[in-house]
Design a protein around this nucleic acid. Structure first.
Lengths: 198, 198
DNA sequence: GCCTTAACGCAAAGAATTTGCGTTAAGGCC
DNA sequence: GGCCTTAACGCAAATTCTTTGCGTTAAGGC
């Protein structure tokens, strides 16, 4: 079935879900988080509050649902020609997205519902993107990096600083972390892992 | 029921805060998180709901407040005689506390209020504990590790796995991360940083 | 085109949150 | 020590949010 622009033609259910998601995105940009309520979202979306309560349970689950969608990657990682370049571009953009105000808000919404697999799903997005870069490296004949290892060395520290607000987050910091990945040490003239930030 | 031994003698305010905190801790252990409401906590603490609303604003801020107190270290890091031993003991315990159900719940409560400095305060607890171990290392004449570097290499990855639910969390994993800290490579027969988990 | 059923709208009931106002007690001052 | 000022609390009414029963709509199968 041909997918139209915004409103999914087939199904009242899908149409309402899209309207509610849109309402959340619009209102999130307009008003403060504490002011956001289910009745307000329902009014903007043109549905009754009970529809939202029955479908999502409560506000936090709805916000988590919307946040996962917004954190879903929209494209493949940029191909810069080299694995080091691909990783640097991707990681710096990841850092900037996550450390922005809207990024932090979405992370919070995703982490609120522990029972839901929201956070795990977002981690999967990251793994998939990094795996694409690793696969591309293998295709080029370069030695591919281990995705789990890169998450430990680069993604984990970045996310820690984003969530717990410690330390500076700069592209240089990202490069310093990337310089510690063993598979990337062959080509460039990166310093040893005794890296110093800024 | 709510026996009040630990009442802070000076001040109604402090007494009420202690009663409310106790009520939150008791109820958190008894009922599910979704069932926890301000009126319920107020009844257990023997205060009126409006007192809690005026003092903490809403439930999430109260829970964050309580969670920070519960995440505050109660003692200095265990002194095992060596820096490597101190770090291994501390990090493994940190991992076990944070990855437990109650630990995850407290982390969630702490991360919910971005505007509050709760998360930053918890990160400070970690820094202070690690700095104590580093100072002890210097006192022994060992080369002290850099706390920021250890947070990047060990704490960040652990917290990522705790929050985003990816990968296994075992003492061996903690040791593998610790083996990557350059200052700890001198004494032990640890592998190089090409570390592989279990 | 008809049938079954999941999902929605509406409205009333129930629960939580906010707010005005009187009261209590902590801390400063004499 | 007693008095005074004021921040914090208790109470209850008003408001807002959440839940729920029931009738209605429309998606998907035949």
């Amino acid at each position: 079935m041909a997918v139209k622009e915004r409103i999914r033609v087939g199904g009242r259910s899908a149409r309402i879900q899209a309207a509610v998601h849109d309402a959340v995105r619009e209102l999130s940009a307009e008003i403060d988080r504490a002011e956001l309520t289910v009745p307000l979202i329902a009014a903007r979306a043109g549905v009754t509050p009970s529809t939202i309560y029955r479908r999502w349970g409560d506000l936090s689950e709805l916000l988590g649902d919307v946040a996962v969608e917004r954190l879903r990657p929209v494209a493949e990682p940029l191909d810069t020609g080299s694995t080091a370049g691909d990783l640097e571009a991707w990681v710096v953009q990841y850092m900037e997205e996550m450390s922005s105000a809207v990024g932090r808000a979405m992370l919070r919404d995703v982490l609120i519902n522990i029972s839901e697999g929201n956070a795990c799903q977002c981690a999967n997005f990251t793994y998939e993107q990094l795996q694409m870069i690793a696969d591309r490296a293998a295709h080029r004949g370069e030695v591919p990096f281990d995705v789990d290892d890169l998450v430990d060395r680069v993604i984990g520290p970045i996310m820690y600083h984003v969530l717990f607000g410690h330390g500076e987050l700069t592209p240089d910091y990202c490069r310093m972390l990337l310089a510690r990945v063993p598979e990337l040490k062959g080509g460039a003239d990166v310093q040893s892992a005794r890296g110093e930030a800024s």
